[in-house]
């Protein structure tokens, strides 16, 4: 369920090029000629780690909570988006597939971000399922298998290279990977690998930093992800010290209401879907960033699991100043459960 960024690009493609963020209106449009997700999916791996060009949008979305030698906390993001102008793939410049990617490193004081654009068909960007490789320009997430990856990205003021090793199974959201996004039935295919152990090196303006930590990779594809009345979302991926994990999101509606959903992930990877009403997320504190107010401290409650926690940004200014801007950064969790994770917020105009 992430990243309206992609959805916004869909809107962007229908709008003048320099328009920037177009808001989220119109994203829940019909899927002209595109395949749409259906209930009871049957995934086939490794093939489904690759691209699905018949669907309008898709992403490979990795976030990591890392720690430096002196205990300093860092956050890392690596995302590859695919957005199709038309279903299917073609050779060369004829390809209707647009690829773009965001990479970021967050420290308690700074937030560095970069973005890349490419067209499918030329080899500048793409995803190969086996052996797995996702790339755009010199940015890469690749390895012998999906459980063992090397991640790298570079920007004008930062770079990183991190090894990822999976220590648990894939996790499927919603109903076996069929994730409903609105009462009207908009849905996506959605699974994650939240059990990566991560180790590597960050290159920052102050020099190189060796880091270790954990990472969470989301895979999602769809063709009509948002309902017409949905304006943006708040998405949480949290890892508690107990070993349990929580994915939670709420979609905000124009009428002020929300559609919330999530997945409770036990330390062994078994899941329980949390439907609309099973969780609540309430903003506690806002930060002015990039000329707008964004909530950077939240109250998150899952009564069925006795979860009542405060989620606070490591760096409230984790603003992604990309063509389609949004907030994405590492968070700390306190309250009934302690832990850390990532927060993404979109649609705060």
């Amino acid at each position: 369920m992430r990243h309206e960024t992609l959805l916004a690009l869909t809107a962007l493609l229908a709008a003048p090029l320099p328009a920037g963020a177009q808001g989220f209106a119109g994203m829940g449009t019909d899927a002209e000629g595109f395949a749409t997700p259906a209930p009871d999916p049957r995934f086939e791996f490794p093939a489904d780690h690759g691209a699905h060009p018949d669907y309008r949008i898709e992403w490979w979305y990795l976030t990591a909570n890392l720690e430096g030698p002196e205990g300093t906390a860092y956050g890392l993001q690596w995302t590859l988006f695919r957005s199709a102008l038309a279903p299917g793939e073609a050779e060369g410049w004829e390809s209707p597939q647009i690829w773009f990617a965001h990479a970021a490193v967050t420290t308690p004081e700074a937030h560095h971000a970069a973005e890349r654009f490419a067209r499918g068909g030329t080899g500048q960007a793409g995803v190969r399922p086996d052996p797995f490789a996702a790339w755009i320009d010199d940015w890469r997430m690749a390895g012998e298998s999906f459980d063992d990856l090397t991640l790298r990205a570079t920007g004008p003021e930062f770079a990183y290279e991190v090894e990822l090793t999976a220590e648990g199974p894939l996790v499927f959201h919603g109903d076996g990977g069929y994730s409903v996004k609105s009462e009207a039935g908009q849905a996506s295919y959605y699974y994650s690998q939240p059990f990566y152990r991560a180790a590597g090196t960050l290159t920052l303006p102050g020099g190189e930093v060796a880091v270790t930590g954990s990472a969470w990779l989301d895979r999602e594809w769809s063709s009509q992800p948002l309902a017409a009345d949905q304006t943006g979302w708040d998405w949480f991926s949290l890892t508690f010290e107990s070993g349990a994990k929580l994915m939670a999101f709420q979609l905000r509606q124009t009428d002020g209401g929300t559609f919330a959903s999530g997945t409770w992930i036990a330390p062994d990877g078994t899941t329980e879907a949390l439907g609309d009403g099973a969780l609540t997320a309430t903003p506690l504190e806002e930060t002015q960033v990039a000329g707008r107010m964004v909530p950077t401290r939240w109250r998150l409650e899952v009564p069925a699991r006795d979860v009542a926690v405060t989620v606070a940004a490591l760096n409230p200014r984790s603003w992604m100043d990309t063509s389609v801007p949004y907030w994405e950064g590492p968070v700390r969790v306190a309250g009934s459960h302690a832990g850390r994770g990532y927060l993404e917020m979109t649609g705060y105009e």
Partner: peptide
């Protein structure tokens, strides 16, 4: 001008 990207590409 303000050529929509899709027009340009497709």
């Amino acid at each position: 001008g303000d050529a929509p990207l899709a027009t340009f590409l497709r």
